[in-house]
């Protein structure tokens, strides 16, 4: 069996404690949440941190709650908690639809929102959901707390705005009354990473789209989103023709790479096809259907 190289380990009891431990253990220390991305890399010895700071016992990083006009999700909230959250189900069915297709039920018991966002895998589902919903990340460091729009959170594959010595503590999603949302994903098999996914929210009011967000994953979309397609749709009626045109813009904005999940032309097609399907459902849902 694969085994990691040696490292030091410390269990943090609070965010302040975690930041102090990160400072103490230096640049080659990493925080560990669910561990389902980091530990396999360490077992392959592709990642070899000097120290792991365990965030699993930090109560203040848990919980899903409403604060003002936002839903606040703690960084250590597990995938399984997102799946079963009544708050998220009420406001954004996109979460449940996406979570049903993230890894498998056992992995979802450990994997966390923060871990997924910070791993920044180009095929991560929650990154697409976060970009679709135009959420914000709350990052805490020795110098204090700052917020970053999720659409600016990722610097590229496996890179985020979280600097050495900092921790992602929360992800916040604005509540949009009347929004419909949906997630569409193609995977080769249950539990596989996405071949392509599209997640959207749409607010239809007075017969036109007044707000929308389109998130995409595994298709090389900048910051997991398709802003030009969103702009196109604003102010237009959610007709099949308009939704298809928006989906086409989304598909054209992607830059997928071929891998064993599929060739680039297929993934680009999926970006279009899945966006269209998600837009249809979200628009219907926003109109109370």
């Amino acid at each position: 069996m694969q085994t990691p190289a040696p490292f030091d380990y410390a269990k943090a009891t609070s965010v302040a404690d975690a930041l102090a431990l990160l400072d103490k253990h230096g640049e080659e220390a990493r925080v560990i949440a669910g561990g389902h991305s980091l530990l396999p890399m360490m077992k392959l010895r592709l990642a070899r941190p000097d120290a792991l700071i365990d965030l699993n016992d930090i109560a203040e990083l848990r919980g899903i709650r409403i604060e003002g006009n936002e839903i606040v999700v703690g960084a250590m909230v597990r995938h399984a908690e997102i799946l079963s959250s009544a708050i998220l189900a009420e406001h954004y069915p996109i979460f449940r639809e996406a979570e049903h297709m993230i890894a498998d039920p056992i992995v979802r018991n450990r994997g966390t929102v923060g871990g997924s966002m910070c791993q920044a895998d180009p095929a991560a589902d929650l990154s697409a959901v976060g970009s679709a919903l135009k959420g914000t990340a709350v990052i805490q460091g020795a110098a204090g707390t700052r917020t970053v729009a999720l659409r600016d959170f990722h610097e590229g594959p496996y890179e985020t705005k979280v600097q050495a010595g900092e921790i992602l503590t929360q992800v916040r999603y604005p509540i949009r009354p009347g929004a419909g949302s949906a997630y569409e994903k193609v995977e080769r098999r249950a539990g596989d990473w996405a071949v392509a996914s599209s997640g959207v929210f749409v607010v239809v009011s007075g017969g036109v789209v007044t707000d929308c967000g389109i998130g995409l994953t595994a298709v090389g979309a900048d910051h997991y989103c398709a802003p030009a397609a969103e702009e196109f749709l604003i102010g237009k009626a959610p007709t099949e023709e308009n939704l298809a045109a928006a989906a086409k813009i989304a598909g054209d904005s992607c830059n997928p790479v071929a891998d064993q999940r599929g060739p680039a032309d297929y993934k680009a097609h999926l970006a279009y096809e899945l966006t269209l399907r998600a837009l249809r459902r979200a628009a219907r849902s926003s109109q109370g259907a």
Partner: peptide
């Protein structure tokens, strides 16, 4: 017959499955 392979077959351009997908 992965989704990609089926879709490409429908397009008339099947992939070669024993090599890296291009």
């Amino acid at each position: 017959l992965t989704p990609a392979n089926v879709w490409r077959a429908i397009q008339g351009r099947p992939v070669r499955t024993d090599m890296a997908v291009e």
